[in-house]
Design a protein around this nucleic acid. Structure first.
Lengths: 355, 355
DNA sequence: GTGAAAGCGCTAACAT
DNA sequence: ATGTTAGCGCTTTCAC
């Protein structure tokens, strides 16, 4: 019997310098037991005893490390989750992903990561790649603009997935987001309670669901305090994507526009937006209010993990946050299979105040 | 012939709702060709013609998506790279990882991500998991404190890997880092040229190689300008790890200490450290210099991707950066195999000035 | 308690 | 040009 008949062309058992990787077969040959026995021992479904000891000793001696690929193949589960996100360099999402990875790891899963840069073709490629890799589930953080296609594709492919930090209209798709309206409301009310009467809302383009909802909260808060809603106070800001440096001019214009307004407080679509605005104002020599005295509230509470010498208050989760709820929901979905009923989690928020 | 003999217990061909995933076998049955023919067509190594057309049409009709796991198994290569890093929520590393992922993706690789939180047991687990998953290579960003063990283990396991943003003494291990000494030198010289004469160096613990080297650069710059090196001006700061909130008191003390010093400029171990110091000073009501007027230089140039209303100058790469050099080096290593000679890249730096 | 053998989906060698 | 077959490393059934 020619055992390594294909060694000449198959790289399978070789590593870089030609040393073969140790397999169960090697342990079997070394100990004289069958591959099956070795497998059972290594998985701990074997009564302890001399056999067990010998096999484990051989495994240790030979430096055996299992091959997940092979067991995945047989078992049909890879214990891998794909995380698909538009910009993982964004500190807010960085923190999110770190928590995803840690939580998944605790539960025995590894994470594959895709960065779409908010480009549809990348998003498509990521989704296909994830399916091709047989991931057990997907954490999907899409941008609103073209979220529909990929989400529907995923839905039709029947792979378990959760949309995070966003939502889609299809009621059968599970998602996790914050209470955006309440967030907009609390942010605005916080500024009002500080004495602000002329509050600018720096919102994202209308296509973005969370922007719409936060703006609605802003409107409600003004109304409740009988303050006028002024169109001039609604500023639509460009993307904060690191990749899109082309937006520099657009940002400059927005900041110039802001500098002209007689505002006394700002609600920003996100902490990132807030910081960009403050930076823009500083760059333009804005002095009516000292930069680090401007009453401003953002979203995402990134200063919790990333302290800055600025009084940037922020809307963040009050209880369980997206970082924890999303993988929890996904894993539940994977474990329950068909018995899982879709859930749309809307997480409670509060103001994290900073002076 | 019982084809699906194991369907009852193997989940392999099933997905969530019991619908089986389409395989080449299905396409073969659908078209009447053999699996081999299908495989060849799908891989494009088949002359175009009627066969080709029919197979591709069937693949499209059935919604075929390949199974990377299966081909990996056969080919011995997973086209996957593991990224192992201590804290991916750190904005600097977030940006790095985003670039890694994008570059790898362009080259046909996917990325698996591990976050060690700077805990040795997590680091060990990540390394083992990566090997178990048969990744083709590893991008390893270790913390100095216990980098030795994992790095040596990786080295002995013969898996291609590159140490990034750090270095180890073993000359056979490839690594990518910035010119730390020059960075420390330029940062200090920049402040001196601004008129600073009493420059604090906020460095990390001695165990960290880059801290040692940056401090050496600081020393050299002072010497060159005939300025005294004062021990009182060397501040050792705690970790900035998001996970380690326990360091809060230590940070407070360091900032209090700093506030007492008659400094007129600061070199910080990283931009993160710089920001924490400024925040600490602000919290303590420091007023001798306005917070946003303090001459300060950090490392990593995170403001490039993450604008802030602060005059934080920073040391960053002058040419090719770590984000690009590391995956480039790793992929070269993977492709060349045994022919690859270890390289230790030390990237040139410059000051990114901000006022 | 232990072993033999099938098979997960795919690719490569070989045969026609 | 197309089919047959072995085998990647593992898990599971089934038989002893």
């Amino acid at each position: 019997m020619v055992v390594y008949k294909y060694l000449s062309h198959g790289v399978g058992r070789m590593n870089m310098n030609g040393k073969q990787r140790v397999t169960m077969k090697d342990i079997a040959q070394h100990t004289g037991y069958s591959i099956n026995t070795v497998s059972q021992v290594l998985r701990g479904i074997y009564p302890s005893g001399p056999t067990c000891d010998k096999v484990l000793a051989a495994a240790k001696e030979l430096g055996y490390i299992g091959n997940s690929i092979a067991s995945s193949m047989r078992l049909g589960s890879t214990k891998t989750i794909a995380i698909i996100q538009s910009d993982i360099s964004n500190p807010y999402f960085g923190r999110l992903i770190r928590n995803f990875v840690n939580i998944l790891s605790e539960r025995g899963y590894t994470a594959t990561i895709y960065n779409t840069d908010n480009v549809l073709s990348h998003e498509r490629a990521a989704v296909i790649s994830a399916i091709r890799q047989n991931v057990d589930g997907i954490l999907f953080g899409p941008d609103d603009i073209h979220s529909g296609e990929s989400v529907e594709f995923l839905y039709n492919s029947r792979i378990p997935f959760v949309v995070f930090a966003n939502d889609v209209s299809n009621p059968n798709i599970s998602s996790v987001r914050i209470d955006e309206v309440k967030g907009g409301f609390l942010a605005t009310r916080h500024l009002i309670s500080q004495g602000c009467r002329n509050i600018v809302m720096a919102t994202a383009p209308k296509g973005i669901l969370s922007a719409q909802l936060r703006l609605e909260g802003y409107r409600q808060a003004l109304e409740k305090s009988s303050l006028p809603y002024r169109n001039a106070n609604i500023l639509s800001v460009p993307s904060v994507f690191a990749s899109q440096g082309g937006h520099r001019r657009a940002w400059k214009e927005v900041c110039a526009q802001l500098a002209q307004l007689p505002f006394d407080g700002i609600v920003a679509f996100s902490d990132q937006v807030a910081l960009k605005l403050l930076q823009g104002l500083r760059e333009q020599g804005f002095e009516r209010i000292a930069i680090d005295q401007i009453p401003i509230v953002g979203f995402d509470n990134i200063l919790e993990a990333f302290p800055l010498p600025l009084p940037l208050s922020s809307i963040g989760c009050a209880g369980e946050d997206i970082a924890h709820a999303s993988p929890r929901l996904l894993l539940e979905m994977i474990e329950k299979g068909e018995d899982f009923a879709p859930q749309k989690l809307v997480l409670d928020v509060k103001v994290y105040k900073r002076q």
